[in-house]
Nucleic acid binder design. Structure first.
Length: 518
RNA sequence: GGGUCGUUAGCUCAGCGGUAGAGCACUCGGCUUUUAACCGAUUGGUCCUGAGUUCGAAUCUCAGACGACCCA
């Protein structure tokens, strides 16, 4: 609908004729609105306070009644009411061309416009703290209507596609991203204070590694080189540990070419943390303390409610082996199975699915865990000691053959962190990655590949190291009580919006296609 | 990948085989204590797209697009 836009363009011209932009250069607010609300909470109804204030923000609502008008102006901190009366405004601007300053602000300023005002304070008879405006400046004319002031943006798709509108009208959305920023900065500060260095590693890689995932592919023109976007930061951070950095981390975006769901976005944020001379037990301690600290900073405590469920993140957290958890849930004792066939038969008898790709007792254990245990791990739980087959970068368990020193942290049924005593033996590492390559050749397109340079780094000698990865998006979902990962990513991936006329051009075959009878 | 639901005015929605509707927003008029302001008037449509059934389709059928949720 362009009529509204035309009207507002006309108002913009009228404003320009009055010397009001309509796009201002700068404005100096004296306060945020929330500061005024707090500082003048004691001002009584009907009273005025003759202090000069200046505030800037977006006009959210307008109520004009003859010679008096009320606007709501919102800045980042929240709203404040503007009290506009004809007598005051016209007296303050005697040189304004007819029909006068009050008429100008009430007829040329629309909901959605960004304006700055100067005035004094007054609490109205109804108890609303207001800026009694003496002068105003148009800072930016909005040519588009704001979403419905009562319903807000109910269309979920529009909320994601036009996040700016969502942010303007939904305080809850603003709060979510504010908390996300708080969580990330609290995490970095906590790590920095403990001597961890954040070092950036490449996003563009020749050999994607560090996780079981399919990468995005791209190309470097000048080198005529196929490249992939990183699926993890692990192998480069380990090279830094080899190089002598004993505590390193990187908090950043990684990319996995997978489906989209309420828990998956193709680009998401992780933090990977490596500590030399530590093992996975140390990383459990670190994980507890780090996440509990971030939770305190963001939520004010270590207890929270997620989608109606009480979650207590107060350390220490439960630690249980995968074998024990699967036994509790299914009665199956996986350490007693002598062959895959035996394990598969026992699983089938329990009504568990037995996928063909799970070609070993260890992989079936993980299947049983995913099918029967995972979703019920509501309170924070470290699941420890994974089968070696699924963990090609983790060190063999010091006392349990066939297992590795690995844990995953589950909260509200979701994998939230993953950590190992890192595998530092280059010979063992080569064998593990070669086994992965064999799987890849057999059709597992998420299997890892051999990274010769990484193996070379290990040959130089890597100290025993504990490594940890945390999914930031899922953690923020937990801290903000968000049901979907899209609610904590400002601009989640969506299919591009296609206009109907372009759609017709894109599918010319459709117009003449023969129709099969209905 | 499979299933369910949704898509109608700028926004929120109703209409479910017989002339396209409401509230809000916009525009105009009135109004000096409103806060979903109020009162009056006007304006606004590719009913997601394409095809089919029918005398007649927003409505029924098929295909497609996009989205949400659930499952894998």
């Amino acid at each position: 609908m362009s009529e509204l836009r035309e009207t507002r363009l006309e108002k913009g011209k009228a404003l320009a004729a009055l010397g009001q932009g309509p796009y201002g250069l700068r404005f100096e607010p004296s306060h945020r609105t929330a500061e005024l609300q707090e500082a003048h909470a004691d001002l009584a109804k009907g009273e005025e306070r003759n202090v000069a204030v200046a505030v800037a923000g977006r006009v959210m609502t307008r109520r004009v009644m003859g010679k008096l008008a009320f606007f709501t102006l919102a800045d980042e901190s929240g709203p404040i009411q503007l009290y506009l009366d004809k007598a005051t405004l016209d007296a303050a601007s005697p040189d304004a061309p007819p029909p006068g300053d009050f008429a100008h602000i009430t007829s040329l300023v629309d909901a959605g416009d960004l304006i700055g005002v100067q005035g004094t304070l007054r609490r109205t008879d109804r108890g609303e703290l207001s800026v009694k405006v003496t002068s105003w400046q148009m800072l930016s004319k909005s040519l588009q209507p704001l979403p419905d002031k009562w319903h807000g943006l109910a269309d979920v798709e529009k909320r994601y596609r036009q996040r700016y509108l969502d942010l303007i009208v939904s305080p809850h959305t603003r709060e979510t991203f504010r908390r996300r920023a708080l969580a990330v900065s609290a995490m970095r500060r906590w790590l920095d204070e403990r001597g961890f260095l954040e070092i950036e590693t490449p996003v563009l890689q020749s050999v994607p590694g560090g996780a079981d995932a399919r990468p995005f592919e791209t190309h470097h023109n000048a080198l005529d080189l196929p490249l992939t976007l990183r699926i993890a930061t692990e192998l480069h951070l380990k090279r830094l540990v080899v190089g002598g950095f004993e505590r390193v981390y990187e908090l950043g975006r990684i990319f996995r070419n997978e489906g989209i769901s309420t828990r998956h976005n193709p680009e998401f944020t992780s933090v990977e943390i490596y500590q030399a001379y530590a093992d996975y037990g140390d990383m459990m301690d670190l994980t507890e303390r780090l996440i509990a600290h971030v939770c305190e900073q963001v939520c004010g405590g270590t207890r929270l409610t997620y989608q109606g469920t009480e979650v207590d993140l107060t350390p220490p957290w439960r630690r249980a082996t995968m074998h024990d958890l699967v036994r509790e849930a299914t009665g199956l004792e996986f350490s007693a199975f002598g062959s895959r066939a035996e394990a598969a038969a026992a699983m089938a008898a329990q009504g568990l699915e037995v996928p063909a790709l799970a070609d070993s007792v260890g992989r079936l254990l993980v299947e049983a865990f995913e099918q029967r245990v995972e979703a019920d791990l509501i309170q924070p739980t470290f699941v420890i000691d994974y089968p070696v087959e699924n963990s090609p970068l983790a060190r063999a368990h010091r006392s349990k053959p066939g297992l590795v020193e690995r844990f995953e942290l589950f909260i509200v049924g979701r994998e939230t962190a993953n950590a190992f005593s890192e595998l530092i033996d280059p010979v063992d590492q080569r064998q593990r990655l070669e086994a992965q390559m064999a799987r890849k050749a057999a059709g597992d397109d998420e299997a890892q590949q051999v990274d010769e340079d990484f193996l070379q780094a290990l040959e130089v000698g890597m100290p025993p190291t504990g490594g940890l990865g945390i999914g930031i998006d899922r953690l923020v979902m937990l801290l903000t009580d968000s049901a979907s990962i899209r609610d904590v990513i400002a601009f989640p991936l969506l299919r591009p919006e296609v206009r109907s006329e372009l759609r017709a051009e894109a599918r010319p075959d459709q117009a003449n296609a023969p129709q099969s009878g209905a």
